[in-house]
Amino acid sequence: MSNKILLIEDEGSIRKFIRVNFQRNNFYVTEAASGEEGIEKAKSENIDVVILDLMLPGIDGFKTCELLRSEFPNVGIIMLTARSQDMDKIMGLEFGADDYMVKPFNPSELIARTRALLRRIGKELPEDSNILVSGDIKLDTFSMKVYKNNVPLDLTPKEYLLVKTFIENKNKPLNRNELLNIVWGYDYFGDTKIVDVNIRRIREKVEDNPSAPIHIETVWGIGYRWI
C-alpha cells in the first residue's frame, strides 16, 4: 500500500498539479477544498502526511493545522503559502507544521521533503511495499508493471492505474465517478463509459475467462469491485 497524502487546497488547478505529481511517485492522494473538509477526511482515512494550504475558505490553514495536530499528533504536516514572510513561517511551525514551502515551488522538492518527513516520523514504507499482490496478480508500483502468474501484462497507463486503484481498495465498491476522478482527473468531462471500456479491456488481460471474472466484479447500480 502506498503512503497516503491528504491534500487540502481550495484551488482546483493547484490540487490537480500536486496530486498528479504525487501519484506519479506512487503516493495515494485524497483531496479536500477546505479545512473543515480536510479534517473530516483525516478522520475517515489513515493519513501519513497532510499538504496544507495557508489561505483557505472558512477556517484558515493555521487553525486547520492546530486542529489536525491536536487530533492526529503523529501525522506529518507540510504547509504551503503564497506568502514568504518569516512571521507566517514561524506561526505555521508554532501551530504544529513540520515543514513550510512557499508558492510557486518545484514539485520534485515537495515530494523530496515529504519523503524526508516520512523518514523522520517513521512512516516511510519499506522497499517491498512496492509490490502489491492479489491472487495470481502482482503489481510493481516502482516499475509500473502488472504480472499474471509472473508473466508481464501489456497494460496501457490508464489500465495500470485502474488495476492499482482496485487492488489498493480490494473488496470496496468503486463507482464510475470515483474511478474517473482518480484515473482521468477531476477536470475530465468526457463520456463516463470510458471506464466500462477500460474495464472490459482489463478483464481480457487479467481474467482467465473475461465473461466470468474472478478479479473485477460488477456491482450493479454502483460500479466495480476488485475481489
Rank of each mutant, 00 (worst) to 15 (best):
A42R: 11
I137R: 09
N209H: 06
P57K: 10
W226K: 00
S34Y: 03
M144A: 12
D208R: 13
I182M: 05
S108A: 15
T141M: 13
W220C: 02
E204V: 01
I216C: 00
I8T: 03
F95K: 15
K43I: 02
V20R: 09
K164W: 11
T81M: 08
L67I: 14
M91I: 15
D60F: 10
G185E: 01
E178V: 10
E40A: 15
E204T: 07
P104G: 02
L80T: 01
G135R: 01
P57H: 10
F166A: 12
R225V: 13
I14Q: 07
L174Y: 02
T192I: 13
E159H: 11
M101C: 09
L132F: 12
N130G: 13
N74R: 07
I167W: 00
D187T: 12
G92M: 09
E11Y: 11
E9P: 02
N130W: 05
K103A: 02
K148P: 03
T218K: 14
I8D: 05
T30E: 13
M91V: 12
W220G: 00
L118I: 07
I47N: 04
L93P: 04
I51W: 06
R83L: 10
E159I: 04
I8G: 00
K205H: 12
N130E: 09
R19F: 07
L139S: 03
T165R: 07
P157R: 04
E127G: 05
C65R: 10
P73C: 06
N175V: 10
G135N: 05
S108K: 14
I167M: 15
V29W: 06
V183A: 12
T30R: 01
K41M: 15
D10Q: 03
G92S: 15
A33M: 09
K193F: 06
R69T: 02
K138M: 13
K193P: 00
K158G: 01
E109W: 03
R201H: 13
S108G: 07
P57I: 12
I199K: 09
L117I: 04
I111K: 04
D98Q: 02
V219E: 01
L125F: 10
N198H: 15
I47E: 09
I5Q: 07
M91T: 04
K16D: 14
R120M: 14
I5M: 10
R200T: 12
D48N: 14
L56E: 04
V102I: 15
S44F: 11
L110A: 03
L54F: 08
D187F: 15
R69W: 09
R203H: 01
N21D: 02
D53T: 05
N209P: 06
K16S: 13
K63D: 08
C65Y: 03
W184G: 01
D128F: 13
G76Q: 03
T30K: 02
L7Q: 00
I78G: 00
P126V: 05
R203I: 03
E45K: 11
I111T: 13
F142R: 01
T192H: 13
V20D: 10
V49S: 08
F72K: 00
L6G: 04
E94S: 12
N150G: 02
F166D: 05
